[in-house]
Design a protein around this nucleic acid. Sequence first.
DNA 1: CATGCTTACGTTACGGGTAACTTAAAGCTT
DNA 2: AAGCTTTAAGTTACCCGTAACGTAAGCATG
Lengths: 343, 343
Amino acid sequence: MKEKSSKNNRISLSEVARAAGVSKMTASRVLRGEGGYSEKTRDKVMEKVDQLGYLPNRLATVFAGDQSSTFVGVSIPDLGNEVFAQVLEGIDRKLGSFGRQTVLGLTQHTQQEEENWIRTVLSWQPAGLILTGRYHSPRATEMLRNAGIPIVEIWDLNSSPLDMSVGINHFDSGFDMGRYLTSCDYSNIGYVGTSHDTANAATTRLDGFCKAVEGGGGRVVKQLCLHDTATYYPGFYGTEQLLASGSGVECIFYQNDAMAFGGLQYCASKGMLVPHDIGIAGWGDLPIASVIARRLTSMHVPHLKLGQAAAEMMIGRLSDEPVEPCRDIGFRLIPGTTVRNSA
Amino acid sequence: MKEKSSKNNRISLSEVARAAGVSKMTASRVLRGEGGYSEKTRDKVMEKVDQLGYLPNRLATVFAGDQSSTFVGVSIPDLGNEVFAQVLEGIDRKLGSFGRQTVLGLTQHTQQEEENWIRTVLSWQPAGLILTGRYHSPRATEMLRNAGIPIVEIWDLNSSPLDMSVGINHFDSGFDMGRYLTSCDYSNIGYVGTSHDTANAATTRLDGFCKAVEGGGGRVVKQLCLHDTATYYPGFYGTEQLLASGSGVECIFYQNDAMAFGGLQYCASKGMLVPHDIGIAGWGDLPIASVIARRLTSMHVPHLKLGQAAAEMMIGRLSDEPVEPCRDIGFRLIPGTTVRNSA
DNA sequence: CATGCTTACGTTACGGGTAACTTAAAGCTT
DNA sequence: AAGCTTTAAGTTACCCGTAACGTAAGCATG
């Protein structure tokens, strides 16, 4: 009787083979269904497989170098932001339907976390990586280049990606929103968002936004970058801070819809009418926008589709199909009714 | 341009060793810092490691059976529900801080998906599994029992878990809400939720709720189980359906806060005053509750903490520390102001 | 009946690390 | 200086599956 050895005590293929009275090579052939065995042998082996509850050890297969692994590493900044939760859901479902597994990494918006995660996940020989964002630390970039596996950078469309990229042009999406708001005759505009320690898509969006506003004769009189998560409550108190600064803001653009919704609620709590007293514009067109009384002015981005597209590009590359390296998933302005009508 | 060899072309330890002029065993010792080498040798090896960009192959280590892997499989029903996104975030952050990686599985609330995922993820020799829910298919249960690895069942507290469990008693949380609403003098109460093909926590909650309401002399006159996701818009149209059925409902309990919020918006759109014309109660105390004008009557559940606790139990077990197999993370009723005051 | 071909297996080697064991040289003791 | 211990290595075997190759038996063909 052997005690539970510190070693792995799971049933191995050799044990199945011995029980079935064949060599492990034959058992292996049966399990892979690649032929070269009789029906009688197959039945014997399969019977023992069921009986012993054999589960193959994919580590051994991959390790042997015959196949690549079915892991795909996916880095996401955080899940408190509904946007990224949707992107991840799109990725995981699509990968799952092709027999691939997601190895998750939450990078908390920092390059250092991302770098650490990349180092670890690469040591597991993933089939590929999907990374949120286009900015990586120099060491991370080097590891990624040397890894020799497919890499999809998502979210922030990168026209010269490490390998592949899918997302939208955040500068342009900010620009379009800026142009729309100035076309609605706003000239003193505020911004409420959050800041992180790295260059990111929200910053790029803000750049595009400012450019359009200034080009249209308006001014972004106040930009608030809170050190907080981009959700409801920061939108609420950020609005309070912004309005308290007395800069005569007529309209506020928010980093995302959750923050905009927080702002909307702040205004309601102070008896301010939207859009009569102040204009509110979000970004992302999150599900919550579907139920509020006024249609939130926002920018629609197909988050789920973005995730799916990233997974499809990954799978395409892994199947040696030709894959367009850059895919713009597009966005669409939702005029809504939380800013005043354009002329 | 290098031809892509089908084999893995990454730098191996032997190559590092050869470059440094030592045996791979010595290089291995240096990398693990376990002593038995001179400083000069260490420097030589580390120099080559940096120079060649060597990344260890953890597959080989684990495969050799000397250590268990650092993977932890985590199954989550879906990420559209903010609750589970938060739980996952709690898990992944805590696991990550202990050098473990999350292998995600979205089971879409079906046991079949869960079973398939379990089979696949077990073939990767994970160190442990964290599963949402206590109900698994018979085959899944068998595989889990045979796996011989730590398993944490979360969300729905299981007093006789496969291995460990952390969560809350959903029946009791529903019961408490039912008792509270009847104490507020509601007797005709409705429920809006979603249904899935398996027994789940929301159903258990509803059972407890009904029991308390009936015990308190009220009636759950209408239960709506939509075939949809448990988010804002289904809450909105579910409310419409429920009220249109003309069953004289005075108060509605929702599966979660997002649905309750949808209901709140529906009522507002019809000019109904809350709680004067109708009472609204949610469940989960999601972040959105922090910004709406009236405090939503809800049930606070520490989602992030729940995820962290699950990860801590997993890590404790993996470190051979004694771990309490069941942990009740608790809930707390938020009276709020969207139901009328209790007497 | 010798030859070649097919079927149904078995045998060997390998991959990348590490445990366990072995060895050579250096250092220390008396 | 002989004998013992310690240090710094090297060698071998193994983990679990699979590719590549080997082989024996059965069968058809000329």
